[in-house]
Design a protein around this nucleic acid. Structure first.
Length: 416
RNA sequence: GGCCUCAUAGCUCAGGGGACAGAGCACCGCUCUCCUAAAGCGGGUGUCGCAGGUUCGAAUCCUGCUGGGGCCGCCA
C-alpha cells in the first residue's frame, strides 16, 4: 500500500544522495567468505547493492522487488527492480538494467547477469550456490521459510506469538463453523509468521513443536456435525479442505478439484476421507513423512547420514543437486518465503496450501527421477559419495513441508 | 433496500502486479483395424462477464454495471 509514497520519497531523496558502496555489509562479506546459498534474500540483496552502486540510491530507498524464477531457464532468477525504479528516475528500464548487470558481472557468485524481457535483471547464481540452498534450508527450515534475518533465533526459548493456539474443531457447531475456525487458525499463524516482529517467536514455536502421529480423529463425541466430519476425514483433512479454497463463502456445489468438495460433510466427504494421493491432506503429510523417513531411517540403516552443517558440497554433490528434477525442487523451495508472504498479505491460506502441494509434487518427481539412496541397482561410487547431498535436499523438503503444515494447523507425522 | 461473495477453455478448477493465461477430463485429428473400443501420438478450442481507472505493465488492485449465491433489514 505505501508503494506510491515510497516512490515519492525515493525521488525526493535522489539529489545529493551519498554514494553507498555495495557489498560492504557485514552479512554480505561473511557469506562471501564462508558459505553462500542462493536464497531469495541473498540474491535480492546482491541486486539491490549493485543497483545502489549503479545509481547512488541507498538500498533502503529502493522499491520492493521480489525475485521470480525464470520459466525458461532453471537456475535463473528475475528481478523487476529496474522496471519499478526506472519510471521514478525517468530512465528506460533496459538501460538501467544494463548498468546494473554490468556491476553484477563482477560478482564471483554469479555465472551470468543479463537484461531480459521488459527490462528485468536476470541473474544465474553459480551451481554450488544453488546447491547450497538445500543445505541451508535443511539446517533451518523454519528460519528460511519465515525469512528470518538471523536464523539462530528460531531456536531461542520463549512463548509463541499471540493467536498461535488452535481452535478445538470438535466443538464447532457445524461444518461451516469448523471451516471458519480452521481458516482463522491458519490466518493467525500465517500472519504471525510473516510479520517480522513476531516471526522469530513463530519460527521458534514451529521448531519446538513435538512430533505427531497420524491419528487425528476425536475419540468420543459424535454428537455434532463437526465432530462427525472429524471422525470421517480426520482433523488434518478437515483443516486442509477448509484452507484450500480461496473464497471465504462456499458456492453450493463448489469443489477444489476432482471429488474434493470445498466444504466436505460427514455424508459427502469425497476424496478427503481417503488415504491416497487424491486427498491433498494425505499427499502433503505423506510427502513429509517420506522425506523425513528417508533421512532418519532408510539412510541410517545403510550407515549414511547428512554431513556437517554449512559444509561446502563437492563437485559431484553439486552436480547431483543440479539435475533437472533436483533443480526444479530447489526452485520450488526458493519460492517458499514469497508464497508465505503472499498468503499473509492477501489473508488467503490457500496460497500456502497450494505452494506446499507444488513442493510435495516436486519432491516426488525428484525422488522418482533417479535412485536417491543406493538401492539394489545403482551402487556406483559416484552415487554413494553424493548421498549426503541428496539427503540435504530430502531434509530441506521435509523441513519446509513440516513448517508449512504446522502454519495451517496440520500436524506432520514422521513415520510412514 | 444495505452488506458480503463469486464470474478464467465445453465441464471441474489452478493462476503470488511481470515474459506468450495453464492442468485434468471432455473434444478434434492421426496411427492401428472387418467395424468399434482400448492404447499411443499430436492439437488449447479463451473478447479472463462488461466498461472505466491506477501502473512502465492488470486475469490479478480500485470504481461502476450485469449476472449467480449468501447474510441482514423492510413490507406482511
Amino acid at each position: 500500500m505505501p508503494e506510491a509514497d515510497r516512490g515519492r520519497d525515493t525521488f525526493a531523496v535522489l539529489p545529493g544522495t551519498p554514494h553507498i558502496r555495495p557489498c560492504t555489509g557485514a552479512h554480505m562479506a561473511m557469506t562471501a567468505l564462508s558459505f553462500a546459498a542462493a536464497t531469495p534474500r541473498y540474491l535480492s540483496d546482491l541486486i539491490r547493492h549493485a543497483c545502489t552502486e549503479a545509481t547512488g540510491i541507498p538500498a533502503a530507498h529502493l522499491p520492493d522487488a521480489p525475485l521470480r524464477r525464470s520459466t525458461d531457464q532453471p537456475g535463473q532468477y528475475l528481478s523487476p527492480l529496474t522496471s519499478r525504479l526506472a519510471g521514478r528516475l525517468g530512465r528506460a528500464a533496459r538501460d538501467l538494467a544494463a548498468d546494473i548487470t554490468a556491476v553484477l558481472r563482477n560478482q564471483p557468485h554469479l555465472t551470468d547477469a543479463q537484461v531480459t524481457g521488459p527490462g528485468f535483471v536476470a541473474v544465474t547464481p553459480v551451481p554450488s550456490m544453488r546447491a547450497a540452498l538445500a543445505q541451508l534450508v535443511a539446517d533451518a527450515p523454519a528460519a528460511f521459510l519465515l525469512d528470518l534475518a538471523v536464523p539462530g533465533v528460531a531456536h531461542q526459548p520463549g512463548p509463541p506469538p499471540d493467536g498461535w493456539a488452535l481452535s478445538d474443531l470438535a466443538h464447532a457447531r457445524d461444518s461451516g463453523q469448523l471451516r471458519d475456525w480452521a481458516r482463522a487458525d491458519a490466518r493467525r499463524r500465517i500472519a504471525a509468521a510473516a510479520d517480522p516482529a513476531t516471526a522469530p517467536a513463530a519460527a521458534a514455536a514451529l521448531t519446538r513443536q513435538p512430533p505427531a502421529d497420524w491419528r487425528d480423529v476425536p475419540q468420543d463425541n459424535t454428537a455434532t456435525e463437526a465432530a462427525q466430519l472429524l471422525t470421517v476425514i480426520g482433523e488434518a483433512a478437515a483443516r486442509v479442505a477448509a484452507c484450500r479454497s480461496a473464497a471465504d463463502q462456499v458456492r453450493p456445489q463448489e469443489t477444489t478439484g476432482p471429488d474434493l468438495p470445498a466444504r466436505p460433510s460427514p455424508h459427502a466427504p469425497g476424496a478427503w476421507a481417503r488415504a491416497t494421493a487424491a486427498n491433498p491432506a494425505f499427499a502433503l503429510r505423506y510427502a513429509h513423512a517420506h522425506a523425513h523417513t528417508a533421512v532418519h531411517h532408510w539412510a541410517a540403516q545403510l550407515g549414511l547420514r547428512r554431513l556437517g552443517t554449512r559444509r561446502r558440497h563437492t563437485a559431484d554433490e553439486v552436480a547431483a543437486l543440479t539435475t533437472p528434477a533436483a533443480e526444479a525442487l530447489l526452485g520450488t523451495l526458493f519460492d517458499g518465503p514469497a508464497a508465505l508472504r503472499a498468503a499473509a498479505r492477501r489473508h488467503q491460506p490457500h496460497i500456502l496450501v497450494r505452494y506446499l502441494e507444488s513442493l510435495a509434487a516436486a519432491y516426488h518427481e525428484w525422488w522418482e527421477s533417479h535412485s536417491v539412496l543406493p538401492g539394489h541397482e545403482g551402487t556406483a561410487d559416484t552415487h554413494t559419495t553424493t548421498v549426503a547431498a541428496r539427503l540435504d535436499l530430502c531434509a530441506a523438503a521435509a523441513g519446509v513441508l513440516r513448517a508449512g503444515l504446522l502454519l495451517i494447523g496440520v500436524s506432520a507425522p514422521t513415520r510412514l
